[in-house]
């Protein structure tokens, strides 16, 4: 049995008076890739962003229910949100490297968390870039602007940036939706490798991607989790008609 990382219980989320998530119950285990699928606007990103409390910055957003990380409520009063976000890293849909050098992009996180020694930073930067399979491409241009990289490289840079703070969990919101098949393949391989060390939660619109890389899948619809379980089961043998319609493309 894999260790349960996130345990979500009866989660409701409201944007002002609009309810975006309804009674979501989910469990996510260590060393697994969990995929969220579902039509646009069904609340996948919203749910993902509750896991590292990025919704805190959205005005008028409030939640009910519980999210436990290693058994502890992440919305409890005494939780240090910055520390939580260090443990739960995030990669965004659109690559968003800072308009700084490649090196500074990666070093920003570790420096934020108190690592100042140049040699330590050098080491972390190199390791993160290697882990994200982009070291070979950028090792000669560490001091150049990250904005000069291609979209796929930028996204891997963002993954490296997230890895550099040594998170336990990596949230990825459609990390490959803006990328060509080759870059997508690289990033997928990367995720499968990263699974050894991290818990990965990914939002995707790409059914093949979900089947290729994920162990578990959750299907969202209108803010509800309609079905979740082993990816093989969901795709070969969906229990709900609506899940089946969606994954076979008959949705609408």
């Amino acid at each position: 049995m894999l260790k349960c990382k996130f345990d979500v219980k009866g989660l409701d989320l409201y944007y002002s008076d609009f309810q975006a998530l309804k009674k979501v119950d989910l469990e996510m285990s260590e060393n697994e890739i969990m995929a969220f699928i579902g039509p646009s606007g069904c609340g996948k990103s919203t749910f993902l962003r509750t896991l590292n409390r990025m919704n805190d910055i959205v005005e008028g957003c409030r939640i009910e229910g519980k999210i436990l990380l290693d058994g502890k409520d992440i919305y409890a009063k005494n939780v240090d949100v910055n520390q939580l976000r260090k443990r739960v890293g995030m990669v965004f849909q659109k690559p968003n490297p800072f308009p700084q050098s490649v090196y500074d992009n990666i070093a920003y996180g570790p420096i934020t968390h108190g690592i100042r020694k140049k040699t330590d930073l050098d080491e972390i930067v190199e390791k993160a870039l290697k882990d994200a399979a982009i070291w070979e491409e950028v090792k000669d241009r560490l001091r150049k602007s990250a904005l000069g990289l291609s979209g796929g490289q930028q996204q891997r840079l963002c993954i490296a940036r997230a890895l550099a703070v040594e998170p336990e969990i990596l949230l990825m919101d459609e990390p490959t939706s803006a990328l060509d098949p080759v870059s997508t393949g690289t990033i997928e391989d990367l995720m499968v490798e990263l699974r050894e060390k991290y818990t990965i939660i990914i939002v995707t619109h790409n059914m093949q991607q979900a089947t290729r890389i994920s162990d578990k899948t959750a299907f969202f619809l209108m803010g509800e989790v309609i079905e979740y379980g082993k990816t093989i089961d969901i795709f070969s043998n969906p229990k709900h008609k609506r899940t089946e319609n969606y994954i076979t493309g008959r949705f609408g």
């Binding site: 590292n52 990025m54 910055i57 910055n82 520390q83 939580l84 976000r85 260090k86 890293g89 995030m90 965004f92 659109k94 968003n96 490297p97 800072f98 308009p99 920003y108 996180g109 934020t112 968390h113 963002c158 940036r161 997230a162 703070v165």
Partner: peptide, 15 residues
Amino acid sequence: ISKEYYEGALALGAS
């Protein structure tokens, strides 16, 4: 400046 930079930094655990 796009909000993405701000969110990117927050997501790394920066205050």
